[in-house]
Design a protein around this nucleic acid. Structure first.
Lengths: 127, 127
DNA sequence: CAGTATCCCTTCCGATACTG
DNA sequence: CAGTATCGGAAGGGATACTG
């Protein structure tokens, strides 16, 4: 565990802080996963419905940020009505296995965590 | 990529949403890494100085949350002046390799991402 | 359809002061 | 030393209305 993760004192060059800063918001990871799970480019509304509870505004800003970072590509077809398709880039796809690692960990442990937390809360109340 | 990460429509049982919810804040991961990099229990102030720019308040609340989730243990010595030592638990430690995976990805790609973003911004201005 | 623009509420978090 | 309490600014993000 002694490779990349210890020099976060240099705040501007710390990889962890970068990840947290760009992808730690409420929707980025979810959008990436959604696009990553498709092999065809996906339209704005389809992404929106797939996620279910994201607002139009937040989907727009999240997609823009991901596009700016090169994790997602955007193709706009000048038709009426407009059609815009999003896809994950190779760079974005290269991130997914790591997200998946996290998801696997969470899936395995989240029940135990929920129980631990519940105990902790009742102890707090007792004290 | 088709294992854990696709059922996030079930908002309450989605592992990704859980991770984001509990660890997506500004400090949790950084605290975990700090404690994970030590093999001896670490005092409050030492954690604080190691991270450098975390406030006392945020370190307190972050440690409490991590403790409630069972990722960090807390041992209080009733002395004067008080001494409190924190350590990562086995559960917390089991998360670190996944964080490290993310950190490795970021370390490898963050320069490219920064350049891509810079280009994107100048194109936006031009348009 | 795929956005933009605006409003506004909530949460996050830092600063500061105080305490056992 | 290791907190707790309080305040207030800033940012995140939802709801709604509008548009090419």
């Amino acid at each position: 565990m002694k490779n990349k993760i210890e020099n976060f004192h240099d705040h501007n060059n710390c990889p962890i802080r970068h990840v947290l800063d760009r992808l730690g918001d409420k929707w980025s990871i979810l959008v990436l996963i959604t696009l990553g799970s498709k092999k065809d480019p996906t339209r704005f509304n389809e992404v929106m419905h797939e996620i279910g509870d994201i607002s139009q505004k937040m989907l727009t800003v999240t997609l823009r940020t991901l596009e700016a970072d090169g994790l997602v590509s955007r193709k706009h077809y000048p038709e009426i009505p407009p059609r815009v398709e999003y896809a994950i880039t190779d760079l974005g796809a290269s991130l997914l296995p790591h997200i998946d690692g996290l998801a696997g960990w969470a899936a395995k442990n989240m029940d135990a965590i929920a129980k631990t937390r519940k105990k902790f809360v009742s102890k707090q109340k007792a004290a």
